[in-house]
Structures are given as C-alpha cells and as structure tokens.
Design a binder for these strands. Structure first.
Ligand SMILES: [Mn+2]
Ligand SMILES: [Mn+2]
Ligand SMILES: [Zn+2]
Ligand SMILES: [Zn+2]
Lengths: 156, 156
DNA sequence: TGACAAAGGAGAATGATTCTCCTGTAATAG
DNA sequence: CTATTACAGGAGAATCATTCTCCTTTGTCA
C-alpha cells in the first residue's frame, strides 16, 4: 500500500495527463487507475480486475486490458516485464547483463565487466535472500535506431 | 552465433549433466540443446522449434516445450524473463530497482539509492541507445524463505 | 440539449503453453 | 544381442491470458 499523499499526487497526474491527451475521464478509468496507483505489489490485469469489480461489479475484463494499454502508452504506467509475451531462453549460464530493445524486444548480452559491479548499499528487507543480480538496460538497438532516427534522443 | 569452442564446452556439460541426472540422451534432446546452446539471441520455444525442425522434421512442439522445462530444472538453461506468465504493472514511475522472488514471483521495489549507481564502464555496442537502466535482483522473498528454510543458503 | 466520437460490455477468437493419451525407444539386466 | 520397462516423443485437445469484434452507452463539446 502507498501513502495517501503519493496516491493523491498520482491521481492528479493521471487527471492532468488525461486532459492533455484528450482521453475521456470516465468513472471506470478513474477506478482502474486508482487501483493501480494505490498498489506497490506490481499487480496483474486479473488482480486489478478483481479489485475494480468490488466498486464496479459490471466492469468487463476487456475494459481493464484496454485501459492498461491506454495508460501504458500515455506513460502513466509501466510494464515490469517487457518480455512477457513469450518465453525467452538463455544457455549462457555465466553472469552477464541484458540490453532489451523496447522496439523489437531483442535481448543483447552485455558482459559483466562492462557495467560497474552491482553492490547493495543498504541491506535487503528483512528475511530476503539474494541469489543473483544483473542489470537490465532498456533502450533501442542499433537496427531499430537506424530505421527510426527520432528514437536516438533517448527521450521516451 | 557462438564460437565453436564454447559450443563444444556447453554440449559436453549437457552430456555430463544428463548422465548425472539419469536423463535419457535422445537425439531430440541433443539437437534441441544444441540449437539453444549455439544461439546468443535468447530464442523463443517457437524459434527453437523452427530450427530443430530442419534437422528433425517430425519433431513436435510439445517435445520442445517439455525439454525446455527439463533443461531449465536441470540448470542447463535460464529463462530471461521470470515474469513472463502474466503482465505485471507498475505505477511507480520513478527510478527504482526490483527484487523478484524466484519462488512466488512477487516483485518488491528496491529504492534507487539502495544499490550502487549502474554505470557503464564500456560503451554499448555501436548504434545502441540507452533509455533506462535498473537492477534486477533475484532471490527468495521473506515469506518464501520463512516457509522453506533450505532456500536461505543462496545456493541455486 | 443534441450529435458524434470515444469508451464500455459481452462474448468469440487467438496464440502461447500445458496436458492427455498412446506409441516408440534408450537404458540396462540377463 | 535381445527382452523389459520406465522414460521420452508425437499428435492433438484443452487451458489460460490476451485481443478482437460488434454493438450499446456515455463523455465531450458546441
Ligand atoms: Mn543472455
Ligand atoms: Mn516497481
Ligand atoms: Zn530493436
Ligand atoms: Zn516469495
């Protein structure tokens, strides 16, 4: 759960961004975004659907999915897992990092030594056990950047 | 594509691990693992299926999936995307890191300042444009660790 | 208030993945 | 080198998340 101050700030940003983009400010959208914005557990669409249903029993799962896409495109939401559409496999068992192209979803290995060592400066929450750590670099790969010059600025 | 020396080493490891675990060393398994081990593009099950099919036209997609699971459990393969089973959303738009529990797939936010800054010590491959970087920490969350004491060693 | 484009609801369709069921074959003992 | 048998593979059905289609409803704006 998120503090009420942060939630208010997020809801205000949501309202402003809807106006900015000409998105209709519907009851469903407000409730869906509030469910998302008040969670810090990285929920699934199903989870959001279940929660929203308590307030709007007639809401359809399709509406939840459609708005998740709308919000993501509007920059109001991020997908935790860019690669969730299909399993991606790696037979390289050594430590290394990954660069993921936000455009074509290509995954490129980055040698471990090319990134400053990942060091925890504060301990993990109590009871957590760390197995492995790697950097996930997001951006645009060479071939996508070549075909879309305006992506080269790094401004999402 | 991977160098032939590394491929040989991986195939030898594969053979040894199969013997170790009592896994039958079938032609299909060998061809499937070779397809995986000779790729550095983080292929999908479909992609592996297409490639294996050239050598074993009668192979079934189910066999590819089954062996991918077998190999993953054997530690011969890793999933790039632990969270690919369902979309996971994040309304926290600030920079932060993620801890993913390998057991229950819970995603926990780690404040940006709790990890040493992610710095590239060598430039990305030519033409690549970086948008964002974050650490992905893998391990076992507090509640999973509490319920399975033997997971606390960190030895995968 | 009225017109219209955008948004929502219901359920079918799709696509990736898993499962079931039967057949074939690698492993191993004789 | 066979026979036995448990494990592995093939085919296709089933499942589950996600997307799409089609029609109805509702914000938005004049
Ligand atoms: Mn890799
Ligand atoms: Mn997060
Ligand atoms: Zn790309
Ligand atoms: Zn857990």
């Amino acid at each position: 759960m998120i503090s009420s101050a942060i939630l208010d700030q997020r809801m205000e940003h949501f309202r402003a961004r809807c106006a900015e983009l000409g998105l209709a400010y519907t009851h469903q959208r407000m409730i869906i975004y509030r469910a998302l914005a008040s969670s810090d557990s990285h929920p699934t669409p199903e989870g959001i659907f279940e929660q929203v249903r308590r307030e709007i029993p007639s809401i359809s799962l399709g509406t939840v999915y459609k708005n998740i896409h709308t919000f993501t495109e509007a920059g109001l939401l991020r997908e935790v897992n860019l690669l969730h559409d299909s399993l991606r496999l790696d037979a390289n068992l050594g430590n290394h990092h990954h660069f993921v192209c936000v455009r074509c979803k290509a995954v490129t290995d980055i040698p471990e030594k090319d990134v400053a060592p990942l060091r925890l400066k504060h301990p993990l929450p109590d009871g957590f056990v760390l197995h492995r750590a790697a950097a996930e670099l997001l951006g645009v790969c060479a071939s996508c950047a070549a075909s879309e010059p305006d992506l080269q600025t790094g401004s999402s």
